[in-house]
Design a protein around this nucleic acid. Structure first.
Lengths: 346, 346
DNA sequence: CGTTAGCACTCGAACCATTAGAGTGCTAAT
DNA sequence: ATTAGCACTCTAATGGTTCGAGTGCTAACG
């Protein structure tokens, strides 16, 4: 789509102004804008053109213009000038990250908070997907005479654990048997293949200890299942309450959506590599038409990767968000890789 | 405080009516109330009395009455008729709990959701406090050539873990040394005493392996610290957005407060045994004057205990909340004890 | 003497009508 | 092609009026 330089300039200016105020933008306001030296009348003429292209809307006859969803799509995909991250923000991120990066879990929990704090929107981060991950190590840890914890770590560094209880005492000897079983038969297995069938086959292959081992294997299965479902952490939801578009009833709809963790996780995980913007209307939720999500991925050593995202109103400050999100995603990937990926190559 | 039977009856009726509508209650509405057979005029006469006692307020001259904070205090402490839990709700709880009680962590995460769903308010649950808890078992779990996870379980069943990385390969032999050290010197120690000093003393007592062991001990300390800070899980915050008192700016204040997890955890944990009601004004937060918290504790075997709470507007339906909360707290205690406490006595 | 009907009074909510102003589209002049 | 000028439209704000809910008081009632 090419619409001519001047129209582009005006559209950009409208988007910028609307991002700040949230109010419809009029021709007069625009002509006072520094980098546009046209009279209101000329701007109006251009605006009717943009109207006809479906890029601008008027809430009512005597109001200014508001960019349409189409305009944002166009802006994001073609018009937006990509900026570098503000060095000050960058320094700030660099100063905070080391404090929270002692542990992958903590890092992924605090990352959304940091991102939300920087952007003043809400943010989310998923744990690395475990589809292709394998069970790196698995252990049994007694917690009582008849209870113990199954703990497993995936190659993606995600931790899963499940308590089990059995009807007989867990003697040290028994624990050794279980421990050997797990490290020999379960360790190294892809997470995805730890199905009920897998567990059953395994149990069947050990007829002499089947009874003893059964609660253990069930726990293994549960732990694997827990890990398989990528978790999502949110932060800064309150920030969204500052925006007039999320006042009243809309606040409830928005927060109800954010509560649906699983759906949200799927939505932001399934995006392609790179940074993408999803607008509310684009994922079949008319009630969330005022909301947008900017997604990015952080990469770990292998193909394992997780997603982080910024959630805000349509009129977000995309250039900045993209810069911040991109930087944080790569920093996050680097830190997590350091924490998790073995330097086998050395 | 004794105010006469009839005044009590009227106050109770006002509180009940106000709980439902959130609107000031007038004398006419009250006289139509089934169990009050007095004319509006008589009721008005009584109401001026309640006014003078500081139990009722009028938003403006020609509006109905609203119970004051004092009235609620009085109502909760003395006036309220305690009800049994609705058998249907009870059945519902009983049907859900088994599904989520395979694992203490999950149970404490889902409990607020369940509670919020039942009450239609928001809810919170803290993990069991670990002040008097000891380290029940502690283990090291290799996750890479030079990284490993320290995992500890407290006597309260809380799990703590911390990754560490060192500059030398973690040979099986080395792991065995660490493992022995941990089980001999750290296992059984009270959580509260795992201080930097403790760690240093321990390191000093092992001059020959001090260098090797130092990153391990730091991780142990961090894991213990993580466990010591009682976590809090929330659920159902969205429900609060349905109440007119939490519309607009108030929504933001409320949600900002709910984000302060640590403060909230402290607040609801420090309540005495039993069920208590805290009103917004009572904990020095004038901006939260419309909010109340009903707290209860669930007990584990020992003195260990955690708290659960319902968070809602002042005009909550206390009798029901108290019944539901009480039942859930005891059910939760029972389930957690079963999961965690060893049947040593057998 | 407690209770109640009756009534004047108060005050906010709702409903106009009016106005002010922001923004537009069109036309004619530059 | 641009822009000044102007009539036009529509919202938001303003202010006056009405309506009704709820009150407090007084006087009548059982």
């Amino acid at each position: 789509m090419d619409i001519g330089e001047r129209k582009k300039k005006i559209l950009k200016a409208i988007i910028r102004a609307y991002a700040m105020t949230g109010e419809p933008v009029g021709s007069k306001t625009l002509s006072e804008y520094l980098d546009i030296s046209l009279s209101p009348a000329t701007i109006r003429n251009e605006m009717v053109g943009l109207d006809e292209l479906g890029l601008l809307e008027q809430p009512h006859t005597s109001a200014g213009r508001v960019p349409t969803q189409l305009a944002y799509r166009y802006y994001i995909d073609q018009l937006m000038t990509k900026t570098m991250i503000d060095p000050e923000v960058r320094r700030y991120i660099d100063s905070i990250l080391p404090d929270i990066s002692d542990d992958p879990e903590r890092l992924l929990k605090e990352a959304p908070n940091l991102l939300a704090q920087i952007t003043r929107y809400a943010a989310a981060a998923t744990t690395p997907g475990s589809d292709q991950a394998t069970i790196k190590s698995i252990q049994v840890m007694p917690t009582g005479r008849r209870t113990a914890l199954i703990i497993l770590v995936t190659s993606g560094g995600v931790l899963g654990n499940k308590l089990f209880r059995c009807d007989f005492d867990l003697t040290p000897e028994l624990l050794r048997v279980i421990s050997r079983l797990l490290s020999e038969r379960v360790s190294g297995v892809p997470i995805a293949s730890v199905s009920p069938a897998f567990v059953q086959t395994l149990a069947a292959s050990l007829p002499d200890v089947a009874l003893i081992v059964s609660p253990v294997l069930i726990a293994v299965y549960e732990a694997a299942r827990e890990v398989r479902e990528a978790e999502i952490n949110l932060g800064g939801q309150v920030n969204l309450l500052s925006f007039p578009e999320f006042g009243g009833e809309n606040a409830k709809l928005l927060f109800e959506f954010l509560e649906k963790r699983a759906e949200l996780a799927r939505l932001i995980s399934k995006q392609q590599e790179g940074i993408h913007v999803l607008m509310g209307q684009e994922f079949g939720r008319p009630e969330l038409k005022d909301m947008s999500i900017v997604t990015a991925h952080y990469a770990l050593g292998g193909q394992n990767r997780g997603a982080i995202a910024v959630i805000g109103p349509n009129r977000m400050d995309y250039p900045n968000i993209v810069a911040n999100l991109g930087y944080l995603a790569s920093a996050l990937g680097k830190l997590l890789s350091e924490l998790l990926v073995d330097p086998e190559s050395e």
